[in-house]
Design a protein around this nucleic acid. Structure first.
Length: 1087
RNA sequence: GGGCGAUUAACUCAGCGGCUAGAGUGCCAUCUUCACACGGUGGAAGUCGCAGGUUCGAUUCCUGCAUCGCCCA
């Protein structure tokens, strides 16, 4: 019998073949469907900054696993794909590359040209990202692919902004940002790096001013690294319990260089008694800690800098226009001249630098837009509270639960959400601003522009004015524009007009007006991704379904109605079921999706949040671009196969530990695996030039192999490989786990298929089942139940292990081995097989066995085939969500030979494993007593094999077995006697209470039986004696432990009865075993 | 500074108030036996981070310490 299947699973063919097949059949597509319940997962949208890395592979695998599982369970399962424009990160990477390659900055080419370049970048990386996901087997509904800047998402962003604005939840305000004076932009926290520089630490004094306004003669000493910020000081702060200064709190002191008086305050969070003089100056507009202190104590915020970091008008004649560092020198000189200088020391200072210009950033107060998170007037819950409530009352549940604390703690601060970014790549804020000397002028201008009668606002008080504004908007404009008025610094009135989407003509009129200017800032990337769960489904359009991608073949219904008048997709798929993500965006993303979902949809976006582990490198560090320690999953897919990568990844995904992945590069010339090294250390030294390349440059770097010295590129997700050069790709031993498993499964199926010739579908009767059949069905039923439960709890590691253990250690190692004789039976047709040319006394012995133990009574092969097909069918379905490609390959092969199958009643197999039903086996198949009995069989076989190994008896030399045991046990052993022969080439010679140890035999003992294997001439008495003595010692050790417990009165009286009883029982068993072993030892001694 | 998590075999990880603390890889021995050497069979390998405490009993719970990681400020 020859097999069509190769000995090893070849992943790459299967992958491309079945991916196309699934896609062509529309198996990934999800549409509103009245027959099925929906199941929705929204992808945590990857950034288009670069290719996907291992973290994405993990995230994607888990989502696909759940999606495929639910689909099989009968849900209309939607996994929504898409990508994020990722504002600052994408713009930065494009700008950087442009500068490195062409020496151009964004100011050289302008807004439009830069945005165009970023779109090109986006197109190329989006393509690569989606392809990576496809390669992973992701069963996303690709027709629905969204991008946060596409039309559908843009409408949702505009609509949400408008609603927030109209509801008074959006406001403009000042905020301290990291200002890059060189590029003149704010930079985000993660775009800032800290570096130690040589600096100075000066100590100065401020004179204290008494209540009468005169100097009291007291002085307050404090230290600073930035003396120029004195110009902007708003207070001097001491600790409230600091006795040295208690009497001064409430008085003022004078800044000698400006002559301005500032209060002396007490603040426990800012001032530290034991640090320096215990006294600090407070500059709210130029230091993050001082800013917070300023808010707590209601201090003035004095901005002293121009955008280019020169001193502004607050510096007065003396300092205005000076560079920040020149001013620093000058202030030191002046303070010294005024007699307020105390000392200076040299010091290393941690200074924040802009990652983009490499120049020091300044904390700088600038205009920003915010969304109000706090509760509303009258104590009505605000946005933050609404999202907290959803978790508090368990409408949204975290798995593992501990992560809900991160979410609740963060939201609990109810800090306003800063949504503006000084960038060009993103959703531009839809607000137009105009300045007017009076509100009346603003009213007139706007009325004229919109050709409406008039807006009746002419009051001067701004808060009242804003309320008045709302009511002054004519009805037909109420859904189209919303207004706010603010006072500019110069005292003018600023009219802020927010337009809802679809008012392009008004926008054009504003542009042409000459006095309205569109706000230049764009929205924080998280603003658009916060809307992802409903925006992607077409919200706010209630009348139409969201558009599908152009390249969709249009086959199959996309809706329930052919011409719906409502957005069925949104109705059907919202709210989603589970969000699967990593813990670092619980606050930035998860919390915000919940609050916008509640705000826009009136309902939570998902009921479950599963937080999975992070992927770390072999040194326990996060994989990151700057470290260059990332790994493109494609390398692993190419080497191990997609299924192996998915299966391994799922096995890593536990609840507590992050995933540490030791990696190496394989030299393409000599196949040496070079372990990935810590930066600059270890065998693979990364030259400095590599770091440059990793920062996003297109430059290719060649590195020599430490062994063969030949050069090659090293693969990373940070740049594209040059196809003309040999490349070292990443390898990791840990994925061999999945590869080996797939190969095992492959070969088990290969074996089955090879033995299915002549298979006929048919009903299986309970009475036809043999011990091993019942056992494997009991186990399969239990494992299926277990896997279902574990997936429901997102315990992927345990689910994977349960399946692997069943497949390998039960199905392959025992079941397949046990049915081999029955499968072979066809050609033999009789029961003599297996004994070959050795019709010895052993064979004679076998004839005395009860008839029930015989192989091949008529339909043995047929039944074995049917059970085998049924179990394999169930196993493939169980594995399909984990390893879809190999499963499909096997499913189709099995379909060729067994198109109808089933565990009891045959049925036609589903067209594809993807759309087969999730296995459900009757719990009645689970038989604990039978499994126990089976364990005894296994233990006996293992014990005999052990004896073979110890005495060097080859696997083909038959041995005899005598079992001393109770009659009931003996009977059960007789029933499976043929399996001792099959699995251990052992003839069960006798079993029963009357059995005595034959001379010169090796022995073993089980809980309820003693076994003897006569080894005429083979047994080395000395060795056997040692072996048994060792066994006896081991038993005595356990007995000592157990009896010790029982002798301890406190244990007997305090421990639960059940535990005490168990110990007693175990002890009795151990003593019996020891007795047997001692008897053997005695005989050996005699013998 | 606050919070969360981790520390168990050479490596990567499970586990648990009481069973002889497990798995995969690696290692040793052996077998190219008709599904699979990406395999079979057998085996060796652990002071459960350190110090206390609670308990009849702690690797498991508590406290402190050390080390590592992550998030937030």
């Amino acid at each position: 019998m020859t097999s069509e299947l190769p000995k090893q699973y070849q992943p790459s063919e299967a992958q491309s073949r079945w991916l196309d097949y699934w896609q062509e059949n529309g198996y990934f597509d999800a549409n509103p469907n009245s027959e099925k319940p929906p199941h929705t997962i929204m992808i945590p949208l990857p950034n288009v900054t670069g290719a996907l890395h291992m973290g994405h592979a993990l995230n994607g695998t888990l989502q696909d696993l759940i999606t495929r599982w639910r689909r099989m369970q009968g849900y209309e399962a939607l996994w929504m794909p898409g990508t994020d424009h990722a504002g600052i990160a994408t713009q930065a990477v494009v700008e950087r590359r442009m500068f490195e390659e062409e020496g151009l900055t964004r100011h050289d080419i302008g807004r439009e040209a830069l945005v165009e370049r970023i779109w090109k970048w986006k197109d190329s990386y989006e393509k690569r990202i989606l392809e990576q996901l496809r390669q992973l087997g992701a069963s996303c509904d690709w027709r629905r692919t969204r991008f946060t800047l596409d039309e559908t998402c843009s409408k949702a962003v505009r609509r949400t902004f408008f609603r927030f604005f109209k509801d008074g939840l959006i406001f403009r305000g000042k905020r301290l940002v990291n200002w890059d004076p060189h590029l003149q932009t704010a930079v985000a926290n993660d775009e800032v790096f800290h570096e130690e520089v040589d600096g100075h630490f000066w100590t100065f004094t401020y004179p204290v001013v008494g209540e009468d306004g005169e100097l009291t003669g007291d002085k307050l000493a404090f230290s600073t690294t930035r003396p120029e910020t004195m110009i902007g000081d708003s207070a001097v702060c001491v600790h409230p319990t600091d006795e040295r200064y208690e009497h001064l709190v409430g008085l003022k002191c004078r800044i000698p260089v400006t002559g301005r008086d500032i209060p002396i305050i007490a603040d426990a969070l800012l001032a530290k008694k034991e640090l320096g003089t215990g006294c600090v100056k407070v500059t709210p507009a130029h230091d993050h800690n001082d800013y917070a202190c300023g808010l707590r104590n209601d201090l003035e915020q004095i901005n002293i800098l121009n955008p280019d970091a020169t001193i502004n008008e607050t510096g007065g004649e003396k300092y205005q226009g000076m560079d920040r560092y020149d001013c620093r020198t000058k202030i030191v000189e002046d303070m010294e001249a005024l007699g307020h200088f105390v000392e200076v020391e040299d010091r290393k200072i941690e200074l924040a630098h802009s990652d983009r210009s490499k120049s020091p950033v300044e904390p700088y107060l600038s205009d920003q837009w915010f969304v109000k998170m706090d509760d509303l007037e009258g104590g009505k819950p605000g946005l933050a509270q609404s999202a907290m409530d959803a978790v508090d009352d368990r409408r949204v549940r975290f798995f593992p639960q501990r992560y809900q604390r991160t979410y609740l703690d963060w939201l609990g601060e109810k800090r306003d959400w800063c949504i503006s970014r000084q960038l060009w790549w993103g959703h531009q804020i839809p607000v137009w601003v105009a300045s007017f000397p009076t509100p009346g002028a603003a009213s007139a201008a706007l009325s004229q522009l919109l050709s409406v009668e008039s807006f009746a606002f002419d009051s001067t008080g701004i808060p009242e004015l804003n309320e008045q504004l709302n009511s002054s908007v004519p009805d037909e404009w109420k859904e189209r524009l919303a207004l706010q008025v603010a006072r500019s610094e110069s005292g003018d009135f600023e009219l802020l007009v927010c337009l809802s989407p679809g008012n392009e003509n008004v926008e054009a009129a504003f542009e042409e007006s000459g006095f309205f200017q569109r706000e230049e800032d764009v929205l924080d990337t998280w603003f658009s991704s916060a809307l992802w769960p409903h925006a992607t489904l077409g919200w706010p359009d209630a009348e139409n379904n969201p558009p599908l991608a152009d390249d969709s073949d249009g086959s199959g219904p996309s809706t329930l109605d052919s011409q719906p008048s409502r957005n069925e997709v949104l109705d059907y798929f919202y709210p989603g079921n589970v969000l699967i993500t990593s813990r670092d965006i619980i606050t930035l993303w998860v919390a915000r999706m919940v609050l916008t979902g509640i705000y826009n949809m009136g309902d939570i976006p998902f009921g479950h949040v599963h937080v999975h582990p992070k992927i770390l490198d072999g040194f326990g560090q996060t994989m990151s671009k700057s470290k260059g320690n990332g790994c493109d999953p494609q390398d692993l897919i190419d080497r191990y196969g997609t299924d192996a990568v998915r299966f391994s990844i799922a096995s890593f995904a536990g609840e507590t530990q992050d995933v540490k992945l030791p990696m190496g590069y394989e030299c393409p010339h000599c196949q040496t695996v070079v372990p990935q090294a810590l930066d600059g250390k270890g065998p693979m030294v990364k030259p400095a030039s590599v770091k440059v390349a990793l920062r996003g440059s297109s430059e290719k770097v060649l590195m020599p192999c430490p062994k063969c010295k030949k050069e090659s590129q090293f693969s990373t997700p940070q740049y594209d490989l040059d196809p003309a050069q040999p490349a070292a790709t990443m390898v990791s031993e840990r994925f061999e786990y999945g590869r080996n498993f797939c190969n095992k499964l492959w070969n088990a199926a290969r074996f089955a298929i090879m033995n299915l010739e002549g298979y006929t579908p048919g009903k299986i009767e309970e009475s036809d089942l043999r011990l091993e059949d019942r056992w494997v069905l009991s186990r399969l039923s239990r494992v299926t139940e277990e896997v279902t439960t574990l997936l429901g709890r997102y315990q992927f590691d345990k689910a994977t292990q349960a399946i692997r253990d069943f497949t390998w250690n039960e199905f392959c190692d025992w079941y397949l081995e046990m049915i081999k004789p029955r499968l072979k039976d066809e050609s033999q047709g009789s029961r003599d097989e297996g004994q070959g040319s050795e019709p010895t006394a052993l064979a004679a012995g076998s004839e005395s066995r009860p008839d029930a133990s015989a192989f091949g009574s008529g339909n043995e092969r047929e039944v074995a085939q049917r059970v085998l097909v049924g179990v394999l069918d169930g196993l493939i379905r169980l594995l399909q969500p984990f390893t879809p490609f190999i499963c499909e390959e096997l499913w189709q092969k099995l379909k060729d030979i067994a198109p109808e199958r089933g565990l009891f009643e045959p049925q036609a197999a589903a067209e594809s494993s993807m759309i087969a039903s999730w296995p459900e086996l009757p719990a009645s198949l689970q038989d604990e007593a039978l499994e126990d009995r089976f364990s005894r069989l296994q233990e006996t076989v293992v014990a005999v094999r052990n004896i073979r190994a110890v005495y060097g008896i080859g696997p083909n030399v038959p041995v005899k077995l005598f079992m001393k045991c109770e009659p009931g046990v003996a009977e059960e052993l007789q029933v499976c006697a043929d399996q001792f022969e099959n699995l251990a080439k052992t003839i069960l010679e006798a079993a029963g209470a009357e059995v005595d140890r034959p001379a010169a035999s090796a022995s073993f003992n089980l809980k309820d039986a003693d076994g003897f294997v006569p080894l005429e001439g083979l047994v080395d008495v000395g060795a056997e004696l040692d072996r048994q003595k060792k066994e006896a010692d081991k038993l005595r050790g356990f007995i000592k432990g157990h009896s010790g417990k029982l002798k301890n009165e406190k244990f007997v009286s305090n421990a639960p009865e059940k535990v005490v009883a168990e110990v007693r029982e175990t002890l009795a068993g151990l003593e019996k075993q020891l007795e047997s072993v001692e008897a053997v030892i005695a005989q050996l001694g005699d013998g």
